[in-house]
């Protein structure tokens, strides 16, 4: 397993795909710098929340779900290109382990991106001269929570990217699921149950219970955990059966 992971990391690290890691955090940084947080409506207890709010909408709602799909396609691309699957699976490895290794690699990359994004939030705050104490909830809920919320999305996208050679097809599926999240987050009936809305819900730090965006943790985890299991198991089983 260590061997497969090492090999997967090696292949990714040598491809230019790894630069994608910086795209999101940089975009977030730019948005955060452009938007004047002091003009945002609402009295916040802590200005850091405002900084995050200004950056999150684009990042968590659209960018994060979409880019997970792009990453998934990227790490399958070089296998699809010139018989990579054939070669990989003719080695003494099980398909299950290959699937898990690819999955672990993906979530590690997303974690890296989340950490970079945290850096962006920090820079935005410094540039805007925020003096309030840095709320650690940003780290726990936004960064790690948002990361965990992508787990089911990653599983689904990995499965689809293994299935289809082209980039456009998995992306189209991803888009079809991501767009409704824009509506879902505004609905307290559907929002909590819609997996593609979870990265946003997790990354959002509103505070009090009356807030429309507030969703209890355990509920989130049930939705995320449940959809993760479904997507992961489907992808895993599909890969077992796939003819190469």
């Amino acid at each position: 397993m260590i061997g497969i992971l090492g090999s997967e990391w090696y292949k990714l690290q040598k491809s230019k795909a790894i630069f994608l890691l910086f795209a999101g955090p940089i975009a977030g940084l730019l948005i955060g710098l452009v938007v004047d947080i002091n003009l945002l409506p609402g009295e916040a207890i802590n200005k850091w929340h405002l900084a995050l709010l200004s950056m999150n909408l684009n990042y968590a709602l659209l960018f994060l779900p979409l880019i997970t799909g792009v990453f998934a396609s990227m790490i399958c691309r070089y296998e699809h290109q010139a018989g990579g699957w054939k070669q990989l699976l003719a080695m003494p490895v099980t398909r299950g382990k290959v699937f898990i290794a690819k999955y672990l690699l993906l979530v590690t990359v997303i974690l890296g991106m989340q950490i970079l994004y945290l850096g962006s939030v920090f820079v935005v705050g410094i540039v805007h001269g925020i003096t309030d104490p840095f709320p650690m909830v940003i780290v726990w809920k936004s960064i790690l929570g948002g990361w965990i919320a992508t787990f089911p999305l990653v599983a689904l996208q990995l499965g689809i990217s293994i299935m289809w050679k082209s980039f456009a097809a998995p992306f189209a599926v991803n888009v079809c699921f991501t767009l409704p999240a824009i509506l879902a987050i505004n609905s307290d009936r559907f929002g909590p149950y819609y997996p593609w809305a979870q990265p946003f819900s997790m990354m959002y730090i509103g505070g009090n219970t009356e807030d429309v965006f507030f969703i209890p943790w355990d509920q989130l985890l049930t939705v995320v955990g449940g959809s993760f299991l479904i997507f992961f198991i489907c992808g895993y089983l599909y890969f077992q059966r796939k003819a190469v």
């Binding site: 979409l66 792009v70 691309r77």
Partner: peptide, 18 residues
Amino acid sequence: NQGIPITVGVFGVILSYS
């Protein structure tokens, strides 16, 4: 690498959303 146009597309979407 079709990842490039797709990534450009992702940014386009985010821009058009804002």
